[in-house]
Simulated scan of single mutants.
Amino acid sequence: MRILIVEDDKPTAEFVEAGLRELGHVVDLVNNGRDGVMYALDEAYDLAVIDRMLPVLDGVAIVKTLRASGSGLPIILLTAMGGVDDRVEGLEAGADDYLVKPFAFSELMARINALARRPSLKAQITELHVADLTLDLVRRTTMRAGRNIDLKPREFSVLEVLMRNEGRVVTRTMLLEKVWDFNFLPQTSVVETLISRLRAKIDKPFDVQLLHTVRNTGYSVHAPR
């Protein structure tokens, strides 16, 4: 899934981001409420994890703003405020779930998976298709021409980013930002190495190439033109 994290506490943000990336999810992280609203409205996310106490705009205000705009984005609020009134306020604002800090990552994932099974999430995009290639974002499975393809979590994440941008060029820097963290040096060959492995799995066994290298720019997934 593609998940938005809005959290200004750096240790918590890094803890959640690292755990989600390790499981193969595509993660965007912002640290204030204003950017949280902008990202949530401008990008296609499957779920958002939002801290309640944020600079500029707090979590409850974010939820109210998104719901007023008609967004049905599933939202989990994170907060150190565990009182009944606080939980009720967050849920009545339109949040789908509420998790009190400190929390175990396993509990957060259980709540994310529970939301993924709800009709509200399934009504959104749960599968990506390019030609005969299918990515199931909930089950985390990949198929091409009816054949199962075994992808590692990071391979799945890269392919998800490319398929969400079908026909558009995704730069190497964009992949580093969305799939890895920001600690990789620009000269690293990690993207090229992963793309090579991905191509061997989704293209080489088949007659038609879907994953294309755009010289000196990046990569693109699209059917033959």
Rank of each mutant, 00 (worst) to 15 (best):
V27P: 07
L47M: 10
L73H: 03
M1D: 07
I50N: 00
A116V: 06
L66H: 00
V6A: 01
D35R: 11
V6D: 01
R139V: 08
F206Y: 14
R87G: 03
Y219Q: 04
K204R: 15
G33A: 01
A131W: 15
I3A: 00
G82Y: 05
R154V: 15
D207N: 13
V170C: 09
L121E: 04
I202W: 04
V60L: 04
A104L: 14
D181M: 08
R52N: 10
P11M: 08
D86R: 02
A110P: 06
Q124H: 14
L108Y: 05
G83D: 15
R2N: 15
V138Y: 06
L175F: 03
M163I: 10
M109A: 10
I195Y: 00
T79L: 01
A200L: 12
G72P: 00
L198Y: 08
A200C: 07
I202T: 04
L128T: 03
L128V: 05
R34C: 02
E166A: 14
G146C: 09
V208I: 13
A95C: 08
L73N: 02
S196D: 15
L115S: 05
R140H: 15
V130I: 14
M109C: 08
N216E: 14
I75K: 02
L77E: 01
T126F: 04
V16W: 06
V191D: 01
V100N: 05
F103Q: 03
A68D: 11
L41G: 09
V49N: 00
V190D: 14
Y39K: 15
I75R: 00
I125H: 11
V84H: 10
Y45D: 03
V158F: 07
A200V: 07
L108R: 04
T134V: 15
K152F: 09
F184Y: 15
R199N: 12
F206P: 08
R67H: 02
R34Q: 11
D9Y: 08
R197T: 10
G36A: 05
R87Q: 09
F103R: 00
E92G: 06
L91I: 09
A95M: 06
D132K: 13
T217E: 13
T142P: 07
G94L: 03
F156Y: 05
P55D: 04
H212K: 11
I76N: 02
A200W: 10
D203E: 04
E160P: 09
F15T: 06
R147S: 15
L175R: 04
R199I: 10
E127L: 11
D207F: 11
I5G: 04
P186Y: 00
I50W: 02
A61C: 08
L78T: 06
E177K: 13
V30C: 10
L108Q: 01
D42M: 11
E17H: 09
T126V: 15
T213W: 09
P224G: 06
V49E: 02
D181V: 06
L115A: 04
L185S: 13
T142F: 07
V208Y: 09
V130W: 03
K201R: 12
L185Y: 12
W180H: 10
R67A: 01
H25F: 14
R34W: 06
D8Y: 07
Y39T: 12
L137N: 01
D28H: 11
A114G: 09
H222N: 13
L47N: 01
D46H: 13
L135R: 03
L151G: 01
V221Y: 04
D8H: 08
I3V: 15
H212N: 12
A13F: 02
R118C: 10
